[in-house]
Nucleic acid binder design. Structure first.
Lengths: 251, 251
DNA sequence: AAGTGGTCTAGACCACCGT
DNA sequence: CGGTGGTCTAGACCACTTG
């Protein structure tokens, strides 16, 4: 992280222009990837980082500002800057967009009932960047809102990252799935992309969700990424939208 | 915008703490609301604003930074800072999340076929903050992707803001709907919230979209807001997701 | 009181855009 | 070239949290 690294780069090849705050941000992201600070930990103060990098505090601030905007860090005035965690209730509803038609959000209950090692189908392999046949973990679960079964999720995880995952661990407690991944496997989901479609209920889903075969269901396919935009989870969720809706804000 | 407005506010009532950059931001937003700068116009330079408000350039920068992050302004290095506009292709796909299963985004064609003044139903009135029976404009249109009819939209607009809207104007040209609202009626959509559900196709929609009655369709209800979070449009869209999907990024 | 993030300043220089 | 936004500095003071 030497100063003036750009200006001295008068090579013939195209130089890699990158402002100081960007280099600091990249360094901090690298530290997160390497797990040097765990979720919920405080990172060094702005002043200390400024000294360590020999830059002004404002430059460190700009790097942290961007990371806070990307939900990688959380600032807390008077206390410090902390690594984001899925245990934080504030970041809980970021990955669950389902709300009841009337009234406010109610805590949902997760009921996993299947967890096996299987071979990746071509579809799953493509989503996770694996080869068909590679080992993956297949989880099935239901989500209930106020007693009503609303979601049937089928979740596929790269087996190398989550080896040892069992149904018992999943049934654990009140923690969210991503919270468990984070604490038990050191895999932090920082990003996800969902693709939504309306489809007709198949017999298995209809049975689990208490609807008739052929009834319309909201299909939500999600690819979730960890640091470096590496896909580590793919899931196929069927949402019963009789009394709930999927909310999306177009900023 | 006097300096130290906070510190001198030693009243008994709870003072309204607000940093300088926020006051400047509020002023700029007010100017946008009052239409002092139209979509696509350049706002005064950072230096000029700093002089005008008797603050440093960095303070103005922070105000503009936030507004750029909220898509209200667009910065262009070397040129200036400009009021966002829906004519800008970059902000086009912010309000249309539908993509074809295979291949890249294709320009969509809008085909409006109905535009009448009607009385607001209770549902529409509630969404637009009106009284049931108040006048609204009801528009129906189809959206085609590469020749395939994919969306059936029913759009409701507060009549006072869009009086004079005709089918002919809607059929106008290649401009997006929000681009037309912006240039012809001075109403800029800055924000929207969508609620998604899966439902069974009714006869009218099935006919328009070329599917069977009862087939699953994606229902997308949108409330769009202009400055001051004032709702000005409510729409009910039915999306045929046979060959397309609704994409959502969970940041 | 000490330490943290939050705001603000005044000035410097760089990168980009137009003429 | 002049004007614009983009980066960076060094230092000041404020607001919040904790001991």
């Amino acid at each position: 992280m030497t100063r003036d690294a750009n200006r001295s780069a008068t090579r013939a090849t195209a130089p890699t222009f990158s402002p100081l705050y960007r280099q600091i941000k990249d360094f901090l992201i690298g530290s997160l990837e390497r797990g040097e600070w765990g979720p919920g930990d405080a990172i060094p103060s702005e002043g200390e980082l400024a000294q360590r990098f020999n830059v002004s505090q404002g430059t460190v601030r700009k790097a942290i500002d961007e990371m806070a905007a990307e939900n990688l860090l959380v600032r807390r005035q008077g206390k410090g800057t902390f690594v984001s965690t899925h245990s934080d209730p504030r970041s809980f509803y970021r990955f669950l967009r389902l709300l009841p038609d009337d009234g406010v959000a109610v805590p949902s209950a997760s009921d996993p009932f299947y967890c096996e090692n299987v071979s990746a189908t071509p579809e799953v392999a493509a989503a996770l960047g694996l080869q068909p046949g590679d080992p993956v973990i297949h989880v099935k679960r239901l989500l209930r809102f106020a007693g009503e079964t609303v979601v049937f999720d089928q979740i596929y995880l790269a087996a190398d990252l989550f080896s040892g995952l069992t149904l018992e661990a999943l049934r654990g407690g009140e923690r969210s799935l991503y919270s468990l991944f984070e604490s038990d496997f050191g895999v932090r989901m920082i990003n996800a992309e969902e693709r939504l479609r309306a489809i007709a209920a198949d017999p298995e889903s209809a049975d689990l969700l208490g609807v008739a075969v052929g009834d319309p269901l909201l299909l939500v396919e999600r690819t979730a990424y960890t640091y470096g935009n590496k896909p580590v989870e793919w899931r196929r969720g069927l949402y019963c939208t009789r009394n709930h809706y999927y909310r999306n804000d177009l900023g």
